[in-house]
């Protein structure tokens, strides 16, 4: 650890707000990806998930930009300076991210408008396809932006962007599921389809069951990638033992990965017993845990990287 004395910082440059930015970016990309995939490949029963995904993506991009501006604060001195972040495309990863997030915002807004007004079928499909590319770019960006930082060896592994990509898709899907009632409330059209869905309760609960299976697959992949990341990045010692960051790291494994897996298993048991309300509630608890875990992961990686030398 002393080998990098000369690169030490006296304080964090990127703190909790930056972690939130990366977390929201992941959610935005993941939620849009799910929204588009569901729209392309799933039937009408999933319409409400698709709409919720687009709405979540829109809100998450806007929130992520606000959080980022709050973190870098430069606008307080030079109000329009942030526009300079568009300049170095595609040479600088932050510039790439700025362009991708802006484009994803436009696509998400267009999708929400189409959901409101019921736009042309073909346009929606084209928007879906463009959005899939952008959303994959967004989730990958949240990890790549860190892994390019040569001064922080802890981030220098290709498994970090892979981990953030999978985690972004998982948290995006989770947030889209969790926000279905909200999306249904905000969008009248979705509202109808939601209440219809709810009345045909079996299909809403069925959707929870199915998406939980996908979440389980993603969680298992995330666990594998986490192991690969920790195994391949240098200087992980402090993460595994002896600091508040390591405590948070274990909290992430428990809250973000293992407990949701357990809840999913528990729910799959309930499925055959017709305890619908129970399924909905425990699924929501699991969803909140996945989101909490997703945030802790970003925080641990971000802060850990700056502490570990």
């Amino acid at each position: 650890m002393t080998a990098r004395e000369a690169t030490k910082m006296s304080e964090l440059v990127w703190g909790p707000l930056m972690a939130t930015y990366l977390f929201l970016g992941g959610i935005a990309g993941g939620a849009y990806l799910i929204s588009a995939l569901v729209d392309l490949f799933k039937g009408e029963d999933y319409e409400v998930l698709s709409k919720s995904g687009a709405l979540v993506s829109t809100v998450a991009v806007i929130a992520s930009v606000v959080v980022l501006l709050a973190e870098i604060k430069r606008f307080m001195v030079e109000p329009l300076s942030f526009l300079n972040a568009f300049r170095q495309f595609p040479g600088s990863m932050i510039s790439v991210g700025t362009w991708i997030l802006t484009s994803l915002l436009i696509i998400s807004v267009v999708t929400v408008i189409l959901a409101f007004f019921g736009g042309n079928w073909l346009i929606r499909k084209i928007v879906d396809v463009v959005g899939i590319v952008l959303s994959l770019g967004t989730v990958a960006y949240t990890g790549l932006v860190l892994s390019y930082c040569r001064g922080i060896p802890f981030w220098g592994s290709p498994f970090l962007p892979a981990l953030f990509t999978v985690s972004g898709i998982l948290t995006g899907l989770t947030m889209a599921m969790l926000m279905i009632p909200v999306a249904a409330y905000i969008m009248p059209k979705a509202l109808n389809s939601f209440w219809e869905l709810y009345e045909r309760k079996a299909s809403y609960v069925g959707m929870i069951g199915q998406t939980e299976k996908y979440c389980q697959i993603l969680t298992v992949v995330e666990i594998v990638l986490l192991a690969l990341y920790i195994g391949t990045t240098p200087t992980t010692g402090i993460l595994l033992a002896g600091s508040s960051v390591s405590l948070l790291f274990y909290a992430y494994i428990a809250i973000g990965l293992l407990l949701p897996l357990g809840i999913g298993y528990f729910n799959s048991r309930l499925e055959h017993q017709g305890k619908d309300m129970m399924i909905v509630l425990s699924a929501m608890i699991g969803q909140v845990m996945v989101l909490l875990g997703g945030f802790i992961l970003r925080y641990v990686v971000l802060v850990g990287g700056q502490l570990i030398h």
Binding site: T7, V13, R74, A85, S92, V145, C149, R150, G151, I152
Partner: peptide, 23 residues
């Protein structure tokens, strides 16, 4: 400068440092 701090993180020796007033 947009004050993003990316250069601080990418510099192999963490040379560029943040001014808390200029951001």
């Amino acid at each position: 400068c947009v004050g993003c701090g990316y250069c601080t993180m990418a510099c192999p020796w963490g040379v560029p440092r943040f001014d808390d007033e200029l951001h």
